[in-house]
Design a binder for these strands. Structure first.
Lengths: 333, 333
DNA sequence: GCCTCCTTCTAGAACGTTCTAGGCCAGGGA
DNA sequence: TCCCTGGCCTAGAACGTTCTAGAAGGAGGC
C-alpha cells in the first residue's frame, strides 16, 4: 500500500525505498551514471520494474538547467511539414535532444503555438515555413535560438535552413529547354513561403535561355492550379509549365486534361516538393525535390550549435534541390 | 544585473523582487487568483512585463499534482489526423486543458510516441487511429485513461469515440440505389482502422436492398484505388462503386477516366472522409463526412470525465456520419 | 479594552528530480 | 602508526512553481 493513495504515480523515492537505498543512488542507477555497484544497480532496476516506475521528465528538466528540448512549430495542414517533422525527430534523436511539437491550425495561430513551447522550457525553436513577420521572428530570437526552415528571412538574428529554390527552378527550366520546350510559363505561389524565390529563379533561368519569362497567378492549392490552367487555356497554350508546388500542379494537370490537352504531348508540367502525390502512379509528376533529411539535419545541427555556443559562420544554410523526372515532361510529340 | 548570469530566464522570484513583494504574492497575481489588492496586481504585472517573465509550465505542473495535460498520438502522414488535431486543440481549450503532441512517423512507432507522453506527465491519452494491438492498449489503460478515436477496440478498458462507419456505408448505398444504381461494388480498405466496419455496413445495406454485395480488394492510397479500378475494368463494369476512403477513391476515379469511362455517367463513385481532396473543384467527389468537431469534442470530454471521476455510461461513443453529395454520383445517363 | 472578521500579505514546505559535498570503509604506501 | 586514494553510498540543497498556515493591520461589535 503506497502511503498517499493507491493510484499515485510511483516516484524515485518509492523505488529507492523498495530497493533499500537513497534516492540519490536510485537516480544514479536510472540515469546509468557512474557510482553504483553492479549488484545495487540490479536491485534498483528490479524495484523500478516491479512498481512500474517512469521518470518524470518535467521534474528532471526542472532540476537540470538544460532541458535538451527543441520546440517545433508546424502547420497541421501541410503534408510537407509532416515529412519535415519525421526528419526532425530522427535528427534530434541522433544528437540526444527531444522534440516538443506545437501545431498551427485554423484556430490556433503561430503566436499561440510559440507561446506554448516557450513555457515548456524549450531551449531553441525550429519554425517550419512560419508566416510571422520578420520583426516578430527577430524579437523571438532575442530570447532563444530560432531556426527557420523552408523560408528565407532577412534578419541577422535568426538562422535559416532552406532549399535553393531559385536553383530548383533553374533545374526545371533547363530540363524543359533541353527537351525542346521554349515557351515556358510559371504558375506563381503568391505570398507563400518560398514563392518569391522560386519566381526569381524562374525568371533568371528563362532570361539565361533568352526566353520570355511569363508568370501567371496561381496559389498553394489544386483549385488555384485549375484556375491558372483555365487562364492559360484562354490564350495560346505554352509548351511547358512550371508550378509553385505539387498540389497546385495537380490542379493544372487535371484542368489541362479535362480540356483535352495532352500532357506531356502538348504541354509539359513540372511541380515542386516531390510530395507523395507527385509520386503516385496515376499522377507521376516531374517535380523538384527538397532534401528533407538534409534540411532537418542541418536545422537541428544549427540549433544545437547555437546552444553549445559553437561559432557559426553563416546565418543561412542553403540545400541544393534535385529534379525528379517522371512522365509529365518529355520532348514534344 | 541579474545575480546568476545575464541570460538567465527570469523567474517568479525576479518578478517578486522587482515589485517588492513575496514570490507567493507574485504567484497569486500571475495566476489571477484572489488575494491581492488592485494596486499590487498592477505593480506585479508591470514588473513581469518589464523583465519579460514567462511562467515555467514544468515547474508549475511539478507542484500541482494535476497537469491538465492531454497527450495526443497522431500519424504525421494522415491528412485526416491533422483535422482531428485541430479539433482537439479547440476542444481542450474549451475545458481548460493543454495538449501535448507526439507524432508517429516512419521512424518512430506508437510505443515511442506513447512513452514520450507518459514521461511528460499527461493525465490522459488520446490516440488517433492507433495500430497497437488491443492488449497493448488495455495495458496502457491500466495506467491512465485512454481514449481511442476513429477505430473500434474490443476492450472494456479503453474508451472509444468513432464514426458510425457502417451507417455511413448505409447512407452511401441508399443514395446510390435511390439514383437507380443497383450493381454496386465496394473497394475495401483491408486492415486499416475502420475498414472492417465499413465493409460490414456495405454488406448490410446491399443485402437490405436485395443486391449482391460484391467487395474487391483496395487499400488506403491512390495507387491501391487505381489497381482496384483496373480489376473492375477487367470484368463487366458495375454501375456504382463505394470506396474505403477519398484517397483510394481518387485513384479509382482517375483510372476509370483514363479508361474512357464516364463518371458519373457510366459509374458513380462515393468516397469516405470528405477530405480536402474530395472538396476540390477538380475532384468534386461525393463522400461520407465524419463529424470532426463532434468526434474531438467527445474524445476530450470523455478523457476529462474519466479524470474527474464522472460516472460514464458507455465505453463507446458513436457519431453519425453525413453524406455529402457532389458530382461523382447522379442517375445513370 | 477584547474579540472576531476581513483583506492583504509572507514564510516555508511541498512537488520529483539532479547535483554537490561529504562520509565510511577497505587497501596500500610511507 | 598515519595518511592517501578510490569505490560506494547518503544527506541535503537546489530547480521554479503552488499551497498551507498564519501574521499584520484595520474595521467593527460588544
Amino acid at each position: 500500500m503506497t502511503p498517499a493513495g493507491p493510484d499515485r504515480r510511483p516516484t524515485l523515492a518509492d523505488v529507492a525505498a523498495r530497493a533499500g537505498v537513497s534516492t540519490a543512488l536510485a537516480s544514479i542507477v536510472m540515469r546509468e551514471a557512474p557510482g553504483a555497484s553492479a549488484t545495487t544497480r540490479e536491485r534498483v532496476r528490479r524495484a523500478a520494474e516491479e512498481i512500474g516506475y517512469r521518470p518524470d521528465s518535467r521534474a528532471r528538466l526542472l532540476r537540470s538547467s538544460r532541458s535538451r528540448l527543441l520546440g517545433v512549430v508546424f502547420g497541421v495542414q501541410h503534408a510537407f511539414h509532416g515529412d519535415l517533422v519525421s526528419g526532425l525527430y530522427a535528427a534530434a534523436e541522433r544528437v540526444g535532444y527531444e522534440l516538443a511539437l506545437s501545431a498551427v491550425t485554423p484556430g490556433r495561430d503561430e503566436r499561440r503555438a510559440v507561446a506554448g513551447l516557450l513555457s515548456d522550457r524549450c531551449e531553441a525553436l525550429v519554425l517550419l515555413g512560419p508566416h510571422s513577420p520578420t520583426a516578430a521572428l527577430a524579437d523571438l530570437a532575442a530570447r532563444l535560438p530560432v531556426v527557420v526552415v523552408a523560408r528565407s528571412v532577412r534578419s541577422a538574428a535568426v538562422d535559416v535552413v532552406r532549399t535553393a529554390d531559385a536553383e530548383g527552378m533553374h533545374l526545371a527550366v533547363d530540363h524543359l529547354v533541353a527537351l525542346g520546350r521554349r515557351d515556358v510559363v510559371h504558375v506563381d505561389g503568391g505570398r507563400a513561403p518560398g514563392a518569391a524565390e522560386r519566381r526569381r529563379g524562374f525568371r533568371e533561368a528563362a532570361r539565361r535561355h533568352g526566353l520570355e519569362a511569363r508568370v501567371v497567378a496561381g496559389g498553394l492549392t489544386e483549385d488555384d492550379g485549375a484556375a491558372a490552367a483555365r487562364a492559360l487555356l484562354a490564350g495560346p497554350l505554352p509548351t511547358a509549365v512550371t508550378v509553385f508546388n505539387d498540389r497546385c500542379a495537380l490542379g493544372v494537370l487535371d484542368e489541362l486534361r479535362r480540356a483535352g490537352r495532352a500532357v506531356p504531348g502538348e504541354v509539359a508540367v513540372v511541380g515542386y516538393d516531390d510530395s507523395r502525390i507527385a509520386r503516385l502512379a496515376t499522377v507521376d509528376l516531374t517535380s523538384v525535390a527538397q532534401d528533407v533529411a538534409q534540411l532537418t539535419t542541418l536545422a537541428v545541427g544549427r540549433a544545437v550549435a547555437r546552444l553549445d555556443g559553437t561559432p557559426v559562420e553563416r546565418r543561412e544554410l542553403v540545400v541544393p534541390p534535385r529534379l525528379v523526372v517522371r512522365s509529365t515532361t518529355a520532348s514534344p510529340r
